[in-house]
Design a protein around this nucleic acid. Structure first.
Lengths: 257, 257
DNA sequence: CGGAACCTTGAGGACGGTCAAAACAGGTGG
DNA sequence: CCACCTGTTTTGACCGTCCTCAAGGTTCCG
């Protein structure tokens, strides 16, 4: 996991989906922030917490967002990669309806709320870019509802792997045609509405069918086209390509160089 | 379904979660818009469509948002009640990753994008209120992921009914301690990741246990406290009460007068 | 070297799905 | 006002995907 101390790639991601000129980007880059390191497994946010006075941007590492039922069953509702901004919602809502926990050691930049609010007030292009980021979040939630509600275990896992491949590609953390997915099989189950036992069997089956290769938590995708079909994965919902709604290009493998 | 020609109650809902002064409200009320009537079952938006040049606000009636898998399985990802603003996302994203279909005859107000964009640029309080509305949407999606991923059929249906009761209460369309839920059992299944057959059996079981009463598509909740417990329903995620994060009041029945 | 967390595998069970048919409701047109 | 048609609800029988429980292996880290 390389160290990525600046916000450059975050700004580039925003600019991908919403127009930002040099001045806008400079304004974001100039936001006061403090870097912080967070240990794997520790909580960034707990359900019911009052909102923090800052937003955390993931510089490196991964985190996940989850909710619990009364009986203590856990559902992971989102997985976050570098350049994800955790909780701009806390700018506006008073408390959290979910928990966020570090999946790996995490480098985050805590951006002060009042500075961010000021920037949003003064700079509509920045406000829009952040708003759009949240809209894409929503789109991902919708796809997860579909994934969990209407696909079988094989498709769900395949879909999860496809999404992570594409998003990690966008974040620039794909190495050597493989990606490191720092999740236990239990966590993958919590993300897909399955049990760890069934995730285990499903992963083995995907490997046996020659769709993926696992070594530890490194995932290689041997046959992108097949796994895309099995997972019924169409990356349009990630809105990574604002220019071409229906482009075939978006179906290409995230492992192509 | 009473006719509700103005945007007053929409504005009131926004003001519930985000501060708006008289001038802000007047500015929203002055937005140019055209009223339109939409027949039940017709599409407002189709997946893959390029964004419209307007946002539709539901004045009366209900609609749902859905996505399809490759094999044609349908998942309803959201149900919309009066005062819901459909697709502020289209202000910023170029195409739709879902379809929206009318559940009943619908009265909507189409608000012109350019006028709305201008208002957002000029008036930060309005921008914020709309942003917050989208954040609550996200919170609902998260809860649905949990509902579908980690609750059994009985809880899922109970949860759906609780959510609809509370949201319809907020929209002011509860009559006589009952609410009209214009969904077929197949649609309820599509919303909860179940089949219509199982929804039927589950509803019968809830009725038999004395939790609800059904007459046609009118749902009466006989025992709010029990169904809330069965559905593991805690309305905090709806962020209806910004003042009191942990208030017990939020657990009260939406049928109390 | 030891322990904890995680992965793997097996056997059995259950929740919810599938398929199919019948009852019912509501609207339309004769 | 009845006859019809279509969409919806209801019920039954059977089945399969995924869960549960449990034990043994493996990996990783202190």
């Amino acid at each position: 996991m390389q160290s990525r101390p600046t916000m450059d790639s975050f700004i580039r991601r925003l600019a991908l989906r919403s127009p930002l000129d040099e001045a806008d980007m400079a304004a974001i880059a100039a936001l006061p922030r403090t870097k912080r390191e967070i240990k794997a497994k520790s909580y960034l946010i707990r359900e019911g917490d009052k909102s923090h006075a800052f937003c955390s941007l993931i510089l490196s590492g991964m985190a996940y967002r989850h909710k619990l039922t009364d009986q203590g069953a856990r559902q992971i509702v989102a997985i976050h990669v570098p350049d994800d901004l955790l909780d701009p919602q806390h700018l506006f809502l008073k408390f959290a309806d979910y928990s966020v926990q570090a999946l790996t050691t995490l480098e985050v930049a805590d951006i002060d709320h009042s500075a961010l609010q000021d920037l949003i007030l003064q700079n509509p292009a920045v406000a829009r870019a952040l708003w759009v980021d949240g809209l894409v979040d929503s789109a991902i939630y919708r796809e997860w509802v579909l994934n969990i509600g209407r696909r079988d275990a094989r498709s769900r896992i395949a879909h999860l792997l496809c999404e992570m491949a594409v998003r990690m590609r966008a974040a620039g953390v794909i190495e050597d045609s493989r990606f490191y997915l720092p999740m236990t099989q239990e966590q993958m189950g919590d993300a897909t509405g399955l049990t760890s036992v069934h995730v285990n069997r499903t992963l083995k089956a995907l490997t046996a069918s020659g769709l993926i290769e696992q070594t530890g938590r490194w995932i290689g995708i041997s046959d992108w086209d097949s796994i895309r079909r099995v997972g019924d994965f169409n990356p349009l919902y990630l809105h990574l390509d604002q220019s071409a709604p229906q482009s075939e290009a978006s179906l290409h493998s995230p492992f192509m160089t």
